[in-house]
Nucleic acid binder design. Structure first.
Lengths: 126, 126, 126, 126
DNA sequence: GTGGTCTAGACCACT
DNA sequence: GTGGTCTAGACCACC
């Protein structure tokens, strides 16, 4: 997991995002066990309370379930829930595009610019 | 000006953004006078310290200049500086697109989705 | 037995409740033998310690008796003890009704609502 | 506010419940300011983190809104949200009634018993 | 061993 | 002053 303690986005949100990524990529499986609070705490060098906070949030979103004394599991609906969350990110991106338009940059120019950046990156990889 | 005191983005940043918008749209002209801290504070119902913070930031960025005892003016370079700032927003948008890709949504799908949203909105307007 | 390991009520309490239900329904008879810790543990897929805890509690309440080396039996007073426990549940229900009243819902409305729910359920069955 | 540190229900939930009660009773008004984290912390003799936790939960439920550096406000929808929550409590009561029925006490007997308790209490008051 | 709650005390950004 | 995050360390109940 990639955490940045100096980032403006809080650690517990970074953890949420990283765990979601692991579920999306199949490292953590739906119905499977999640790392325990204490384990993850040691592994990431982060206080257990912070892990707890991230886990509580994941549970609130229905992505994980906890069982007293037994541990914590990835919910069966986790995958679709996370995919839904990601879809919402498109809305947020669109909002930012609109703000740019308001600043006088045309929609098509923005799309063009994004494609250009993408091509550059693909070339670098190749 | 549209301010939302409950928004997660701080009020002083909202003010900066709104003032930049007024400069871009010509409501505030380069070389022209900016509203005084006290006036703007009353007009927006915002603490003077908050206005002050926004103005200080605008000054730091070279968008405004204060002249001792004469008030504060929009700098001559303001327009191009703001346009430059907006260009940087494309990078931020691109960052978010990359995050979405990491979640398994292809770049082309994202662009497609953005275009779809744009069309819908244009249709609504027409 | 219906156990839910994700439920907020601890498994050992769920087990107690289920065993009491079996005694009430006659599946387990007063004076009859209770399943062994090991058997029940295997049958329910639950840690033996958890079964043990449930049994200890049942014993403490006088519902079961263990005889050295001979196993565990349902006590003769089990039925009446359990019925008494159930009567106490009315007090708990009453407590919750009072809380609802404090929230501005009248006692009569609550009773009415409960009767309505009951009717609906009876209709569904019929 | 009535808090019991030794109660099995966590302090932060007790606080949530008490604040909801104050909103229902009009002590806290929709759109009005809520006590600050530090103030309430001192007033209740509870750690600020615990208050924070309660407030965060209230915010998540849409009952309150926080504004950076300004404080926290009761949302406009708070009243209806809380009333909705209370309605759900009826379902929980009904669930418990069903459990009692399963133990052989008839629905009508339960209602009768509740009414009897209510009468006794009303008499005591009068 | 597990999750959950709580305290004490610190730090940061915003108004 | 406000809210929000984080650490350290403790305690509890449950499996």
């Amino acid at each position: 997991m990639n955490l940045n303690k100096f980032d403006k986005v809080p650690i517990y949100e970074q953890i949420i995002y990283e765990i979601e990524k692991e579920i999306l990529s199949g490292i953590l499986k739906c119905g499977g066990k999640m790392p325990s609070v204490r384990n993850l705490s040691l592994q990431l060098g982060v206080n257990p309370n912070t892990i707890q906070k991230a886990y509580t949030e994941l549970e609130r979103m229905g992505i994980s379930i906890s069982a007293q004394g037994q541990g914590r599991y990835v919910s069966e609906e986790a995958l679709s829930l996370i995919r839904g969350k990601r879809m919402i990110m498109i809305d947020e991106i669109y909002e930012n595009v609109l703000k740019l338009e308001a600043a006088g940059i045309s929609f098509d120019d923005i799309i063009l610019e994004l494609k250009k950046k993408k091509e550059v990156e693909d070339d670098v990889k190749a």
